[in-house]
Every structure is written in structure tokens, then in C-alpha cells.
Design a protein around this nucleic acid. Structure first.
Length: 233
DNA sequence: GCAAAGATTTGCT
DNA sequence: GCAAATCTTTGCC
């Protein structure tokens, strides 16, 4: 809600056109929103990872421009969505100037609105690929129903499942308030504490990329992809 | 053309 | 703690 009643607090594209680490710090705390009114689903971004330039050997851009990663080479503020492991989609926000392949992977979101719709979307994702036994599917359904709200989007694949994001969202302008899927700026009264660490799931990449502290997160958030304490998943 | 691996998540040993 | 699920993209023949 805008301070003066504006319809939205749109995220300025300039913040994402900046260098990716600065953009990451702007994106932490921002709102990810899908739909409007009774359809709205929204959450606060609490974890992102930076993938910067073609030289970054952990980035999809390391092979240059391909049909899959083309969005990374485009203008900032646009969505780059890809399919990983043949099942999960991952949402990225493109950063830096057009032509410079860089993006921020949205790894975790803390639900703010539409938790029930997120739960339904998670179930729909499950149903769409429920080829295994009915008993297994029902057990998994029960697990989602029992899931704490803060854990509905606590991983890159889960963010996309909860927000119904897939390849059809690739190229969507997230800075356009008219977009179905969009970003809204954080309204902060106090500076947000942001911690950093190495990126997750890129052990295949060589140093120094493997150890670059390009994971940014809100320390202590219950919605992080890596649970604060073992067994809290 | 074909084999291999992946910015993940889940369930079972 | 490990491997399966599942399919697109990459890399090599």
C-alpha cells in the first residue's frame, strides 16, 4: 500500500539495472506478487542468489546466449524462468544493463497474502505430475495441508509451485505494475539485516565461483530454503 | 545422434 | 544420508 494511497509501490527498474550485488540488497524484503484482488498471492523475498556475467562458471550464461537463457541477456527487471531437473521451475530477476547476462535467483519467499491459494497451487503442481500411486499422492497432499504457512515457498522450486510460475512467465516484465507477476518495493522503517554466504547447489563449478558469497538472505527467517535448525523443514 | 548432468525436492534405507 | 523422479540442454562422437 502506498504511503499516499498509491495503488502500488512499484520497484524502480534502476535498482535492478545497478550492479547485481546492490540489486540483490534491494530485492531482499521486496514483495513478489501474482494476480489481483481476491486472486492475489504475495510474499516477501527473504533469500536470493546472484549469477553474474558469462565468466561466472556457476551461471547458465557461462555457455553464452542460448534459447533457454536469452532473458538473462535482456533488459533488467524481466523474469528469467527455467526448468531444472525436468520438474521444478526457478524464477530469476534479470539485472544489469541489456547485453550483460546477470540475474538474481529467488530462492525463498515468506508468504504475506493468499496462503490458501499458495497451498492450492502446491497441490495443483503435485496433481499435474501425480503419476505415481494414489496412496503416495494422497500422503503428499496431507503433508502440504499440514505444512506451516512460512514453509510454503521456502525453496526456488517451491516459490514457483506456490506462485504457479512456469516457462510461460519467462520474459515477463516484473517492474510493470500492470503485469500479472510483478515486484513491489519494500516499505521499511528500519534497515533490514542481510547476511551472505556461498551459493547453494553449484558444487560442479570451480573456484572461485563455488565460494563466492553471492547468496543473500534475511538471517533467522523461518522461510529460508536452508532451515535455521536441522529438522525444521 | 546419443549420453550425461543439472541454480531441486522428496522419500526411503 | 542417499538416490529417484524427469526432461531440457549441453557436449562429444
Amino acid at each position: 500500500m502506498g504511503r499516499f494511497g498509491a495503488a502500488t509501490d512499484r520497484l524502480p527498474r534502476d535498482l535492478l539495472a545497478a550492479d547485481t550485488e546492490a540489486a540483490a540488497r534491494s530485492l531482499i524484503g521486496a514483495r513478489l506478487v501474482r494476480g489481483r484482488g481476491p486472486e492475489e498471492v504475495a510474499g516477501r523475498i527473504v533469500e536470493v542468489e546472484a549469477y553474474v556475467g558469462q565468466a561466472d562458471l556457476a551461471s547458465h550464461a557461462r555457455f553464452g546466449r542460448t534459447p533457454r537463457n536469452a532473458a538473462m541477456f535482456g533488459p533488467p527487471g524481466v523474469a528469467y524462468v527455467y526448468l531444472v531437473y525436468g520438474m521444478y521451475h526457478c524464477l530469476n530477476v534479470v539485472t544489469e544493463a541489456e547485453g550483460a547476462p546477470a540475474a538474481l535467483l529467488i530462492r525463498a519467499v515468506e508468504p504475506l497474502a493468499g496462503e490458501d491459494r499458495m497451498r492450492r497451487a502446491r497441490l495443483a503442481w503435485l496433481a499435474a505430475r501425480a503419476r505415481r500411486g494414489k496412496a503416495v499422492a494422497e500422503a503428499a497432499q496431507g503433508r502440504i495441508q499440514a505444512l506451516s504457512s512460512v514453509r510454503l515457498a521456502s525453496g526456488p522450486g517451491l516459490v514457483c509451485a506456490a506462485f504457479s510460475i512456469d516457462r510461460s512467465d519467462d520474459g515477463c516484465d516484473l517492474c510493470d505494475p500492470a503485469s500479472e507477476l510483478r515486484l513491489e518495493i519494500a516499505v521499511r522503517d528500519e534497515p533490514l539485516s542481510i547476511a551472505t554466504g556461498p551459493r547453494v547447489g553449484i558444487d560442479y563449478s570451480p573456484e572461485p565461483w563455488r565460494s563466492r558469497p553471492w547468496r543473500f538472505f534475511v538471517p533467522g527467517s523461518a522461510s529460508l530454503s536452508i532451515a535455521p535448525r536441522p529438522g525444521v523443514r
